[in-house]
Design a protein around this nucleic acid. Sequence first.
DNA 1: GACTTCTTGTCTATGTTTTGTATAAGTATT
DNA 2: AATACTTATACAAAACATAGACAAGAAGTC
Lengths: 310, 310
Amino acid sequence: MHLFTIQMAAQLSGLSTHTIRAWEKRYNALTPNRSDTGRRLYTTEEIDRLSLLAQLTHIGNSIGQIANLPDQELKSMFNKLTNAGEKRTIQKKIDVNNFTDPKSTYQNLLMAIKNYKLDIISYELNKAKLNLPPKRFALEIAAPLLTEVGVMVARGQMSISQEHAFSSLLKFHIGHLLFKGYENKNKSQTKIAFATPEGDLHEFGILLSALICCQYEHEFYYLGPNLPAKALAEAVAATEADIVILGTMKGATEKEGLTNYLLSLARDLKPNVSLWIGGEAQFDTKAVKNMRNYQMIKSLSDLDTMLENL
Amino acid sequence: MHLFTIQMAAQLSGLSTHTIRAWEKRYNALTPNRSDTGRRLYTTEEIDRLSLLAQLTHIGNSIGQIANLPDQELKSMFNKLTNAGEKRTIQKKIDVNNFTDPKSTYQNLLMAIKNYKLDIISYELNKAKLNLPPKRFALEIAAPLLTEVGVMVARGQMSISQEHAFSSLLKFHIGHLLFKGYENKNKSQTKIAFATPEGDLHEFGILLSALICCQYEHEFYYLGPNLPAKALAEAVAATEADIVILGTMKGATEKEGLTNYLLSLARDLKPNVSLWIGGEAQFDTKAVKNMRNYQMIKSLSDLDTMLENL
DNA sequence: GACTTCTTGTCTATGTTTTGTATAAGTATT
DNA sequence: AATACTTATACAAAACATAGACAAGAAGTC
């Protein structure tokens, strides 16, 4: 388990180091382990506790009254105070800026995720969706949040369930933007199909790609994840799509499996269809190149320029 | 039990600190405990009393008349004065529409799926969403379509890609209804969490269940598919959910795997949390029953009655 | 109607407690 | 050597306590 210095604890909880020490000394709010030389070392649980105390005092509680309560009670207290009676305080904090500042949105979202405030997550995402064009929503909100959340989960600073709840909700909101995109009847010349290979269930790559595609008002067909090669080829033929964007994920498929998938796809796709491959999965580039031209999408902004130059 | 400072009491009751002190001094409206240094400390019951007094004076009662009444009488007085107003029924909300005929919607959708007309699918789903309450959307549109599509794919009358494209889109639309459900900040007593076990990626069961839950305006936490037992238990504890609805799928997990999952879950969940299991997956019912009560959800309409009788 | 009197929310004045932050001096880390 | 952490002490702003004052409105009385 990774331990944090007091400075990191301060940054993560939003308190000052002075305050943290004062709370420890005056109220025994918590008793962090010490290094051999006496320096404080905080666990993630302790930092969560500090964040919780920070939130509760910010709402109006006096630290002296709550410093000694067990984690459990702090959590349920926070739930009660933010759910039922006093939505005001938190609401106020959020509504300060009607025009969305991506940074504050981002911070609010992280805090909401940590506290399982799905309603607030949804509220913030909605606000961002309304105020930002799909491309910016994808590049400035969704993508960085996803990586940040991923990093935090890996570090043990966020739980899997928090990540799940958030990504489910984010998926819904991206989906909302996408199906609204279907309603734009402007038929562009190029049609784009999105899918991930069979066995690869990571959907966010193509979701975000589709959002960027929305921006350029291309006609698109979101076919979803985990699509067998034959099925994908058939769908592309039926829809007369010009471009296939394939999202891959490192580790989701074996190198050989993905290579075979791509070869099978190359065989079945009409020659005039472009194949764009995104993500970090490995495959035998030479073998595939022999059968068909394809392009790699190195990043979302890369995709952006590719679409722009179409 | 945690005690609140006068500031929190003021915030939560909507009064000013001055007024609270005045009511105490002049009318002995209540006698909060004091700290060693003489500061007022309020219990939640006392804050409830303050809120009640605030409400009643706000309506027009004079504080001098009611300040000394016992809690019981304040409550019944409040009930009498407020119950006169509206008693919102769910019924009224439901029967808005005569415009969408589920049958024609259903036929249009099947046709659109067959022709990869994603825009038409989206349009039809949208229309149904607008005209039908979530429950009817789930029971009359989404569920039968899903089974019908499944059957057609099995029979070879529909391709996997058509099924994929449709189910992705349907998922987005259900998600839309769900996150709109988060915006209703009705504070219901029961909170319900939705998830599927680790390894089980079939999401539609809990999606449709959550839709039905929306109807009854319960607070819900959609945690998504593929959630490890520990993570689920943690989320339930953090959100203080009362009911866990677990969607399972025949064949997604081995019988033994699901049994172990449920046993692990039973161990980690608080005893007052209800466990509802839906879907057709097999598990060792006796072993699980030994550890915890659970209920089986036999069908969506079964769930409907279970929620109704809550 | 005009005049008290009572009620009641708010404000002021003054002293105490709580609490965030700053300073100082020594030690550890980089 | 510069930066960061430690403890201990100091200080100032905010919050709270009590006591009393004030004003607008309600109610009672002449």
